[in-house]
Write a protein that binds this DNA or RNA. Structure first.
Length: 480
RNA sequence: GGCGCGUUCGUCUAGCGGCUAGGACGUGGCCCUCUCAAGGCCAAAACACGGGUUCGAUUCCCGUACGCGCUACCA
């Protein structure tokens, strides 16, 4: 039994942005570490220099911080097991390749990519499995040395046992058995001197004292190779936990083209980190009771790998929107202002009048799913004339009693003091008494005249916030 | 093709041999209300299929089907 303190890692490769699937993996690692009183490492896996994207690491760091996922060790904060960027650890990988070579657990392969491609094509054409034919595995010592003297480029491959099988335990999936014969002699060190994922991952996880490897299910098939590596080195493998995939609506692996997959896209659209984290946490995990709304701290307390499910989960934007609306509605007005600020200004709202701005936000909060929704809600409150927006609104103004109501209200609003929702409401009541018009027939024409819309928040408050001058002008326009 | 993993309402899921199969999103209806949003209540909606095991299977086992993943000198 492993009694060492829990250490987990999130190990993305810096190829651009943080994928929402990556966010969930990072989150589960974080939650598990917190739940277990352990620590979390961030490691940058940049061994493929061809795919490296400038600025990707910075972007990753900002995005994780935005989501509230704090790592304990990593490129930004350092730590006792650094460096935390793989391209700065190449000597370690090469050294360990030599170790494997010396133990006869690996061998040099001088096949060129062209040869390998051709061989693969041939195998496919013959309807056989495409796998490395292991021709270099049989090379004699002298032959290898001759080629090395000639300066031929080579890769280092893992010497996979030819028969038998191996098993490992996955916390989420249970016991998994793989026949050695279906495992390829995996390349460990590329001819450019960089390690492949498999080698770097195993070496780093070992030296960074990682106890639990929590990663996406796409890694499940290659875990056998990793286990073989741990055995070859004589190291204790970590506990594995392979998470179910996040899926598109058609149940394929979540990808671009079918919607946004970058966390920064959701951030840009005004989704709150709390909402995204809450939503994504529940994709593949549940607390075992009916709770749905969780702060990240509550998630830390509730999380366990035992409650992670096995099947992939469709990323349902509608449910994310619901979470966002839930959080948006309960934000203090100050935060709402911060979130909606850009759209307020765009809508021509005078944000310097903070009392009015706050009142508007409080009034409209329940109408928002994302902050951008505020724009449409704000239209009636901006300066300028309004026109009935649809047939329903037009009809309300055309009703025979409409003009009676509006004519009766106009002078009253001119003189009502103070200009407040309560007093405006009183005036509307006076109109009701005087004209005998009530209910919908009374309110609808006023609402449409003032806002151009048939629907909206309570009329008294709406009128108060539109302001006396605008209200009077709009009433005059409507009866003209 | 091979190997691996998976399969409860449209979606996220609860269930760990005996339940009217529960909750949430979405959908529909009702209530509240001048209207809408929010909120409350109600409704429709699922155990992939076939064999076993068992007194009894959504649950355990084996097949089949379907889906997904992997099968690179990418991660």
């Amino acid at each position: 039994m492993n009694t060492a303190p829990v250490r987990v890692r999130f190990a993305p490769s810096p190829t651009g942005y943080l994928h929402v699937g990556g966010l969930r993996t990072a989150l589960y690692n974080f939650l598990f570490a917190r739940a277990q009183g352990g620590s979390m490492v961030l490691r940058i896996e940049d061994t493929d220099r061809g795919r490296y994207v400038e600025g990707a690491v910075e972007n990753l760091l900002t995005t994780l911080a935005w989501a509230g996922i704090d790592v304990d060790e990593g490129p930004a904060q350092g730590g006792p097991h650094g460096p935390y960027v793989q391209s700065e650890r190449t000597a370690l990988y090469r050294e360990h390749c030599e170790l494997l070579l010396g133990k006869d657990k690996a061998y040099r392969c001088f096949c060129t990519p062209e040869q390998l491609d051709a061989a693969r094509a041939r195998q496919m054409a013959e309807g056989r499995d495409a796998a490395y034919d292991r021709s270099c595995r049989a090379l004699g010592k002298e032959e290898v040395e001759a080629r090395l003297r000639d300066g031929l480029p080579y890769t280092v491959r893992l010497k996979v046992p030819l028969s038998g099988s191996l098993r490992f335990d996955d916390v989420i999936r249970g016991d998994i058995t793989v026949m050695h014969e279906v495992i390829d002699d995996q390349v460990l060190l590329k001819s450019d001197g960089f390690p492949t994922y498999h080698l770097a991952n195993v070496v780093d996880d070992h030296f960074m004292a990682i106890t639990h490897v929590i990663r996406g299910e796409e890694w499940l098939p290659s875990t056998a190779k990793h286990v073989l590596l741990y055995e070859a080195f004589g190291w204790q493998p970590p506990v594995f936990a392979h998470l179910p995939l996040l899926l598109n609506a058609d149940r394929s692996k979540l990808s671009k083209r079918q919607g946004d997959v970058a966390v920064e896209d959701y951030r840009a659209k005004g989704f709150l980190p709390e909402a995204l984290v809450n939503f994504v946490a529940l994709l593949g995990w549940n607390p075992g009771d009916d709770r749905e709304l969780f702060t990240i701290d509550e998630l830390c307390d509730a999380f366990s790998l035992e409650r992670v499910s096995k099947a992939g989960a469709v990323f349902d934007l509608e449910k994310l929107r619901w979470f966002n609306a839930q959080y948006l509605r309960t934000q203090p007005t100050e935060r709402l202002l911060e979130l909606c600020g850009p759209w307020l200004r765009e809508a021509g709202i005078d944000v310097s009048d903070s009392a009015r701005t706050h009142a508007l936000l409080e009034l409209l909060a329940s109408y928002l799913t994302v902050p951008a929704d505020i724009a449409a809600q704000l239209e009636p409150f901006a300066a300028g004339a309004v026109v009935p927006e649809d047939d329903e609104a037009k009809e309300a103004l055309q009703a025979e009693s409409a003009v009676v109501v509006l004519r009766a209200l106009l002078p009253r609003l001119m003189h009502v003091e103070p200009w407040s929702a309560e007093h405006i409401k009183n005036m509307i009541n006076e109109v009701k008494t005087e004209s005998g018009v009530k209910g919908k027939a009374l309110f609808m024409p006023i609402r449409v005249a003032l806002t151009g819309r048939a629907h909206g928040p309570e009329l008294g408050i709406v009128a108060e916030l539109i302001g006396r001058e605008q209200c009077l002008q709009r009433l005059r326009d409507a009866v003209a």
